[in-house]
Amino acid sequence: MSLVERHLSSLMRQLATQDHVELVHPFAEHKLFGALVYVAECFGFRYAGVRLVGRHKILHVHLVRDTHPAAQQRAAANLAAFPQVGAGGTVPGMYLNSLTPVPEAQADIDLIIALIKYDALVEAGNPRQLKTIGWGAAALFLLMAPLTGKYAVLLPLAVLMPAFMYGALRINTVRRAKLAARLTAGGCAQVRDDAGRERYVRPLPYATQGA
């Protein structure tokens, strides 16, 4: 079984048995997640957000079952038209034996990728968390300096850590702004989730995608 078939087979098993699915592929590119989300949405699910897990911030992409009747009708039609996804059969929106989008699906997958990147930046760029880390580290270095006598090392670090965190926050903000412009141009609506985080929501996929 090829790597593509393993990805698809795992996805389809989860879609068949779960209402909430998390895609986790360490070291995978955003393109892979975008393609898998597209396929999942063809079979009755919708993209719901991301989490960054662990010290290495592994990306987890969250999907939920879409209970809207139109989504379920579309899923049933695709199950009938593509019965062998993950077992060597054709896949909606993809070239044969690959997760490379056909031209008709490319724009929607690009939008999904932009959403994933935006949500990941929101997760990674929590201003309160970054400022707390920066100033907390600075305070720690200042306390350690007189205890260890290593002023030449620790005092510069006390200055650099907050500056580094503010720089990271600024870069994150600029990247989010660029993605927000693309998402807005793609018809996405700006919302705030239950935690108060700024997000974007795509038009209903079953209203914009074919089977």
Rank of each mutant, 00 (worst) to 15 (best):
F45S: 02
L3K: 14
L32P: 09
K117F: 00
K150C: 02
H68N: 14
G134A: 08
P101D: 03
G54A: 11
A180Y: 13
K117A: 00
L179H: 05
L169T: 05
E5I: 03
L160Y: 07
K57T: 05
A48Y: 07
D193V: 08
T148H: 06
N78D: 05
S9M: 04
A70W: 15
R175L: 15
G93D: 06
N78H: 04
P203H: 04
K150M: 11
L111D: 02
A80R: 14
V85K: 04
G88T: 04
E5C: 04
I112L: 14
N97Y: 03
M1E: 04
A180I: 07
A138M: 07
A211K: 00
G86M: 12
S98Y: 01
P205R: 14
G54I: 06
D193I: 08
A139Q: 12
G136D: 06
H20P: 03
A168M: 09
A77W: 03
L154E: 08
D108S: 12
H68C: 08
K31S: 15
I116R: 00
L160V: 06
F141W: 07
V153A: 08
L143V: 10
A181M: 09
P92E: 03
T100H: 10
Y118E: 05
E198C: 11
E5Y: 09
V91Y: 00
V174P: 04
K31D: 15
N97A: 13
I171Q: 10
F164C: 03
G49V: 08
V4G: 10
G186E: 09
K131T: 12
A120C: 05
T148K: 06
R65P: 01
G49K: 04
A181D: 15
A75T: 07
A48Q: 12
I109E: 05
A177V: 02
Q129E: 14
R175I: 05
P26A: 04
R55D: 00
A120E: 09
Q209L: 14
K57N: 12
R65E: 00
E22N: 04
T67W: 00
V37P: 12
Q106P: 03
K117G: 00
A40T: 03
D119N: 12
A185C: 11
I112Y: 07
T184A: 12
V122F: 06
Y206M: 11
R65K: 14
